[in-house]
Design a protein around this nucleic acid. Structure first.
Lengths: 281, 281
DNA sequence: AGGAACTTAGAATAAATGTTCCCACCACTG
DNA sequence: CAGTGGTGGGAACATTTATTCTAAGTTCCT
């Protein structure tokens, strides 16, 4: 009797094994693989019959799946899924303790991640409190009413601008991402009219280009939607509507967590409005 | 026949119930109570026979114990022990889905924001639990050791790629953002050697370009760091190291909150390493 | 010391669960 | 078109598992 040399013993190994073989699996087994990865709790606790029903599969398929992965049977595979529950359980408390006590149990990298996660959660809670519904609505008014939307963000703010540019385009809005490619920035800005909208994203230290573009736009009567930090931003006086975000910050490094969250919310909020308008028309 | 009105339904309630009756229990049942409180994992996952043997008790005693607490049988009591595992190790997708499906059609903009904030916090907690320190360290090893770093992300993943490209450059790493500008994508990829690194960011629905570039790189022996979602991503089998992120999702719209948080953590973690190396030299 | 009430052990039982097996089905090949 | 290799469905099977039951044991009171 040969042993199952390739049967994973840890959950992460199992996860990797499933992911790796996904292409070589038959359709039904892939269906199980998908269910298993997204419902590991069920895999660990429910019975074969239950899992089979929820995944829309025959019980025997689950045994086939287990054997394909090198296990003796379903029971043996389920044991691995159960280790995930027991292994991660005490870790949770330990990790928090390690974080607060500054214990050496964690590597530097994961401690950084812990900090950013905590800071990110704080930033999101802060965002919830600080951002008023009226500001959001006014921002959406601008986005909805504009003929063309120009989005500008430099350096660290560029990813946000890129996301907004992409997502606004997908919503069917005429959108231009002012990326300054080929030094065409000022020419692009010349084309903006007062029926358009400039979305300017900038955080401290504020990009001079972005501030200048904002000023040009404001001088020409172009509406400006500013996404910036609340404290004394040069964008604020130039923008008709300002959305203030104080994003997470650890050791001087600013995260984009909360800003991205707000950007996505803007997009979805706008999408809903457009849907509603289309339906009401 | 009256129902079991006093059967605890939550683990904490069960814990309290056991502790309270500890004195009024018979010796053997108290023995079980002691074992149950100190080995809740076994109580949740093992069979009656196993638990009985480990606790030095007869199987039937466990059933009597359960009935004393007001349960119908051992199985029913075990269910409560199992809730402890699932409650502390929740399936985030379910939670996030419950958050969205449960809520009434998010009418106004601020409710959208609320949802994304909640979903974002959940995603960050998820990230905290699922991302292991070893994965993170291995990712940093790759980033630190590479001569050149190529970053690729399309569509919704592009903002993440843009951020990484920008931040890696600021850390002094030679970085190329594969933006496909002017259709030069494949030419750019030709230049990558096995001493470089490809960072590929892709989420469902996976960009065909990104997957293909990954495959090309993997075929040429180029190390690949994948940033993708955990469920059956085509990136995973191609990448040497994978960082799995399940980002927040509301009404089918995926946020970038958690992904960005992880990206920033990577950057700062790498920055720390580089500082340390410089100081130690 | 003897009996009543309660507790326990262990085999017997019934239910459920995992697993096997066989046939039908589909896609591909000669 | 028949053959072949792989895949899936579902019923039959064997095993495990929870539960019940009865007799023996223990404790405690009078």
């Amino acid at each position: 009797m040969e042993p199952d040399t390739d049967a994973p013993t840890s959950f992460t190994a199992l996860q990797a094994a499933i992911a790796q073989r996904q292409n070589s699996l038959s359709p039904r087994l892939r269906q199980i693989a998908e269910y298993a990865l997204s419902n590991p709790n069920d895999m660990a606790l429910e019975t074969v019959a239950q899992i089979a029903e929820r995944a829309g599969v025959q019980p025997s398929a689950l045994i086939r799946f287990s054997k394909t992965l090198g296990f003796d049977g379903f029971t043996e595979m389920q044991r691995v899924f159960r280790t995930r529950l027991t292994d991660n359980m005490p870790n949770y408390k330990e990790r928090i303790r390690a974080l607060t006590d500054g214990g050496p149990a964690l590597s530097d990298a994961s401690r950084v991640l812990e900090h950013f996660i905590d800071a990110g959660i704080n930033a999101l809670e802060h965002l919830r409190q600080e951002l008023t519904a009226t500001d959001l609505d006014r921002a959406l008014d601008l986005l909805e009413g504009a003929e063309h939307i120009y989005v500008m963000g430099q350096r660290r703010s560029f990813p946000v601008a890129a996301y907004l540019g992409y997502a606004l385009g997908r919503l069917g809005r005429r959108t231009v991402l002012l990326d300054g490619l080929g030094g065409m920035l000022r020419q692009q800005v010349q084309a903006i009219t007062d029926r358009d909208l400039l979305v300017a994203i900038s955080f401290k230290p504020y990009s001079e280009d972005t501030v200048e573009i904002c000023r040009m736009a404001a001088d020409n009567g172009v509406p400006v939607l500013g996404i910036t930090d609340g404290t004394l931003s040069p964008i604020m006086p130039l923008a008709g509507v300002t959305l203030a975000v104080e994003d997470a910050q650890v050791k001087g490094f600013r995260s984009l967590t909360a800003t991205m969250c707000m950007a996505v919310s803007l997009i979805v909020g706008l999408g809903q409005r457009l849907d509603k308008d289309k339906a009401g028309r």
